[in-house]
């Protein structure tokens, strides 16, 4: 069995288990898992840039928020049906990613991190400044009529836990398989080449700026997809989704799970989300754990859980 086939089987197995979990878990955990799946999509988007291309962004909240606001505002102000609003969210974040990518990719390393951070900060402040439209800090709550939609005669109700879970699951599965395909084919090899040895890649005739831009756009658009999904499913959009902490989230999730591994973002998101959720009942200062983990991972396990397992035991776990 080839390595890629093994990995694909593992992914399918994980998907099957995830799907089955909704029949086993308590209703709160199903809800939590719904959230984890959406945030994993966010982290998977981030992973394409950080893990596979080696570009560390500190501003992915901007893309998440682009999807969130594009879809949410379309639904809130124009009453666009949810399915279309979702697509508008994806399109909106794609546009933002291309524009920011064109600018930010002129820089490298630390400068790239700061540029993405600053653009994202400006976007966050803009959501506050234009509070007449965005609702600012307070945010907007989607009206009841925007909480369900018609898909080929089937009414999907976003206030229903099961419906929400299965939509999140479907999007997660699609993005996971998309990432699988994207990171395996010729495009995936170009990404790895850019990460490993940009100079040689260029000499081989590849335009690394274009390769990076494609990765950046794909990454931002997937992050935006997660944002659109989050806003529409939970019916609330607000500026705290655009803040710095939300940029750190996918970084942390990816770092814990394993940058450059297909399933790392899911693992990292699940562990961290549940950890933070438990801690917030116990201590008000749960962010301290986030801080400690960031340092511990950087010091001792920069490749994350799956990355370390891959290097030690299972080379195929890419």
């Amino acid at each position: 069995m080839t390595n890629d086939r093994k990995l694909l089987l593992l992914c399918l197995g994980v998907l099957a288990i995830l799907f089955a979990l909704q029949f086993v878990l308590s209703s709160y955990l199903v809800l939590a898992l719904t959230r984890i799946l959406i945030l994993s999509v966010f982290a998977m988007g981030y992973n394409i840039l950080m893990g596979y291309t080696g570009l560390l962004s500190l501003g992915h909240a901007m893309f998440f928020a682009a999807g969130l606001y594009a879809s949410g505002l379309a639904s809130y102000y124009w009453g666009v049906p949810l399915g279309w609003a979702f697509l508008i969210g994806i399109a909106g974040s794609a546009v933002v990613s291309v524009i920011i990518g064109l600018l930010a990719l002129r820089t490298e390393a630390v400068a790239f991190m700061i540029v993405t951070l600053m653009f994202s900060q400006a976007a966050f402040l803009a959501t506050l400044h234009f509070s007449k439209i965005t609702g600012g800090d307070q945010g907007l709550t989607l009206p009841t009529e925007a909480r369900s939609f018609d898909l080929f005669g089937l009414v999907l109700d976003m206030t229903h836990d099961g419906t929400r879970f299965n939509i999140a699951f479907t999007v997660f599965a699609v993005v996971l398989l998309l990432t699988y395909v994207a990171t395996r084919g010729p495009f995936g090899r170009q990404l790895v080449a850019v990460r490993g040895n940009p100079g040689r890649t260029e000499m081989l005739g590849f335009n690394i700026y274009i390769v990076k831009l494609m990765a950046f756009t794909l990454s931002g658009t997937i992050a935006g997809t997660a944002g659109a999904l989050y806003g529409l499913m939970f019916g609330y959009i607000g500026s705290s989704f655009a803040d710095f902490q939300n940029s750190i989230q996918p970084l942390l999730f990816t770092l814990v799970g394993g940058p450059g591994t297909l399933l790392g973002p899911l693992l990292g998101t699940a562990l961290m989300t549940m950890l933070i959720d438990r801690l917030s009942g116990l201590t008000t200062a749960y962010l301290i754990v986030v801080g400690v983990l960031l340092i511990v991972m950087t010091l001792w396990a920069p490749k994350g859980i799956l990355g370390t397992i891959r290097d030690k035991w299972a080379r195929w776990l890419n």
Binding site: L56, A109, V110, A285, L287, G291, T298
Partner: peptide, 30 residues
């Protein structure tokens, strides 16, 4: 404790000082 051990790698420094930021903030809060 931290920076020397990651050999002042610029990117790793940013991540770990973000961690440090959260720790200091929360310790002061507590």
């Amino acid at each position: 404790a931290i920076l020397k051990r990651i050999d002042y790698d610029p990117e790793a420094t940013i991540i770990s000082t973000i961690g440090l930021m959260y720790i200091i903030q929360q310790v002061v809060l507590m």
